[in-house]
Amino acid sequence: MPMSETKPLVRLAGIRKVFSNGTEAIRGLDLDVRSGEFISLLGPSGCGKSTALRMIAGLGEPSEGSIDWPSSSYDAAGRPEREIGFVFQEPTLMPWATVFDNVALPFTLKDRPKGDVATRVQEALAMVGLDRFAKSYPRELSGGMKMRVSIARALVLRPKVLLMDEPFAALDEITRFKLNNDLLALWEKQRWTVVFVTHSVYESVYLSTRIVVMAARPGRVVGELAVPAPYPRGTDFRTSQPYNDLCRNVSEMLDRAMDADPAM
């Protein structure tokens, strides 16, 4: 394996984040995100997982420590060319724009050549199964479909990293399972790197190649766990013994961290 493959895609070293109101959101966070991983940041609310994700995206700077992109080139201004797709907890669509225009937004904002935008947008919509809804408006779609639009928008620039901040937390379980499966199917085909923030033990085990367990007050990493199960994963995996064992391991890790926390 060549050297560049073993370099992490993103390296977070000694991250500390203190908000302006004095809250210490994260203390001593070290994390290597390797190319092609599906990594979950799992923890209770207030553990800093979303804050960490936003800092990876460049939305907010760490108070201490560094975030490096060792295998990316840097632009003239010294910023890493991160090629990030971000999926928020809410679909975050522009209600006044059609599905097509919403997915095309990254092109609109980036001043890319306009030539193949339409094709790329249609491709992205087809990926999430919404190619027939290009002319619809967000309010005409269900919650799950809006989330799919949001994912298509995050993927339309073909990013290297997809950052997802509890994207399915607001959906019902049936829709969430379906979106979990569709997301995994896409990931297996295209193998971008995913950093997935969630507070669901089951979701993290089902999706990830690796789980980073975090605890709150202050936000920190309390354990890490590889999920060695092969892909494709489906209902068989969801009901298997190794899946249950992994869920129990992760839950115990969370429990131990919570027991030490007087506020819980």
Binding site: R54, G58, L59, F88, T92, T108, L109, K110
Partner: peptide, 25 residues
């Protein structure tokens, strides 16, 4: 919307584009 503001920041939207595609609508 705050989430949309974040999204525009993420994609490095210029001030004019932020106005044209987010604030004005």
């Amino acid at each position: 919307d705050h989430g949309l503001k974040n999204l525009f920041e993420l994609y490095g939207a210029s001030r004019w584009k932020r106005f044209r595609y987010l604030q004005f609508p």
